[in-house]
Every structure is written in structure tokens, then in C-alpha cells.
Amino acid sequence: MAPFAGWNMPIQYSGILEEHLHTRTSAGIFDICHMGEFLLKGDTAAQDVDALTTCKISDMLPGRCHYGFMLNDNGRIIDDLIVFKLKENEFMIVVNAGTIDKDKAWIKLHLSKQTHFEDISDKTAKIDLQGPLSGEILSSLTSADLGAIKKYHFTSAKVAGVETLISRTGYTGELGYELYFPSDKAAVLWNILLGNKNIKPIGLGARDTLRLEMGYSLYGHDIDENHTPLEANLEKFIHTDKNFVGKDALIKQKAAGAKKLLVGFMCEGRRSPRQDFDVLCGEETAGKVTSGSFSPCLKKAIGLCYIDTAKAYLGNKIILNSGNINIEAVITKPPFYKKIPRQY
């Protein structure tokens, strides 16, 4: 167990490698109750969410959710988030745990008077169910038609008798669902899910290796208030055909060209570069590692680093250095782990 954003979080249950491989081959549940959830309601809620985030809200239908960012005036990332359109004038924004307070302050600063804001983090539990068997397992506990829930869609239904928002989203690259429901039911639903013989509980350690194999960014490491989504190579989540805080700065940066980029790297061996290792190109220091770990599926080290744009091309050979440790790597486009696509 380890402290994280005021919560006591399990790093591992049976072991990181075993949990990781179990999620890739069967199904795992993740206790993600620490994450923040905000509710925004009212006739002006849609325009507020549109202005506050990079998500395009105007053509979004209820039952859809979008991944995006909340940016400051300089276009740098205050947080990454998912916006759920619950009803025409009602939205839920899911944010990281460590950023709840600053997000809340920023949102309130930009909110219309008529928009009702509520932090529902404490009364909302979140369990992620991820893995190739997650659909089968979940359908045995709910009458919802899971086949109808496409990626980045959600529905409301009872799961084992608990009123739940079932979202086809995840942080593993596997088929999976994220379940939001009243926090007083957290232990009950957790134990019901654990009763399934194909499910194992998965800790934060494997959550990190699973997301890294997909090349997904982790806030506070790969993305933060020192970087823009353009630098983080996440431009596809930016909609410049609408207005939002930070847009002008992004347009300027796009025209001038970002000076550094977040790229993936793969090492030949098992030794893992860690956060803050220097990135060397020849003799030159050209960047810094933001995430690095052993990949349980590939059996070699992988990671993400910021590197000078001129050096950020696929196949470029780099050295990741700390003290007398030098690890050779090649710039590689994520996802690092590619599986056979599965349809539910």
C-alpha cells in the first residue's frame, strides 16, 4: 500500500507482472475511487464545458464521452479529463485525483453564473473492469446491452442491483468498462466482481505498466503545466474549430512549431530508464524521460520522453543516461504492445 493524493492505494495484490498479464488475457478490476468527478448543470453548462475544455461539446450527443484537456491561458495542461454528456444540459467531468482542488478552482473561475457546479467525487465510486473477458463478465451482472456500447459511449443500468454509469473506456488498451456508482456500494460491488473466478484485483503498479504499453500519458509525469498538448503529441484531442481557454497559445505554437515533442522509445534490454533520465543524441543532451518501465508483454524496457523536435523522428537511436547508467533505445511509435483486435 502507498499514499496517493490523500488515499491509501494498493501498488500490487498478487504481483505486478501476474496482474498485468491477467488483465491482458482475462480480466482485472481496478479500485479507482480516488479520481475526481464534477457535475455541471444548467442551460449554460454546455457552453461552459465547451469553453473550459478542448472537447467539442456542441455536436456531442447524450451517452457520449470525450477525452480532452483543460488548458491554462498559455495552452499548457491543467489536467486531462473525460467529459460525459449525461443530458442536454448536464455534464460529468472526470479528472485526476491529485488535481481535484486546482481543477475546481479553475472551473469556478470560468463558470457562468447560471451553471450549477458540484464536486461529487466523495459520493462517487469508480471501478474499472478491463480485459478481454470483461464484456462477458459484465453482461452476466447487468441487463444492459453491452454490445451496443461502443468506445467512448456510456449507458446507465443496474450492475448486480447497483445503479451504475457503464462507460466503454479504459486505460489499458483492452476491451473494458469503467463503472461509476454511489460510493456506499463500493465494497459490495467490488466483492461481487471478485467472486468471478476470471477476475483478479489489479494495483496501481500494473495500471502503470498497462497504460505505458499503450503509450498513454500519465498526468504529473508525461503531461503537466509545463507542456502543451501539441508538445505531448496529443493534437488529435484538440478541436480548433471552436473556442476554448488556451486556444490562441496553441495556434501560435502550431505556427511556430513545437520545440520539443513527447515520443515513445523501446530499449533492446530489460534494464529500465526511469523518470528524469537524460536523453542523449550523440554527445548532446536532447531531452528527459517522463515514464520508463519494464514491459511485461514485450520483456524489454519501454517509455516516453520529451526530445528536441529535430531529433524526434522514428528510428532515431538515443541513449538514456543517469550517472554511469547508459541504456540504448530507439524512438518508436506507441502503442508498444499490439494485440489482435477483439470485438465484443
Binding site: 504481483g15 530489460r270 534494464r271 529500465s272 524496457a301
Partner: peptide
């Protein structure tokens, strides 16, 4: 240490 992934 947990699962050991590399030994020098």
C-alpha cells in the same frame, strides 16, 4: 523487491 525484471 517484488517481481525482478532485470539483473546486472
Amino acid at each position: 523487491l517484488g517481481d525482478i525484471t532485470f539483473v546486472e
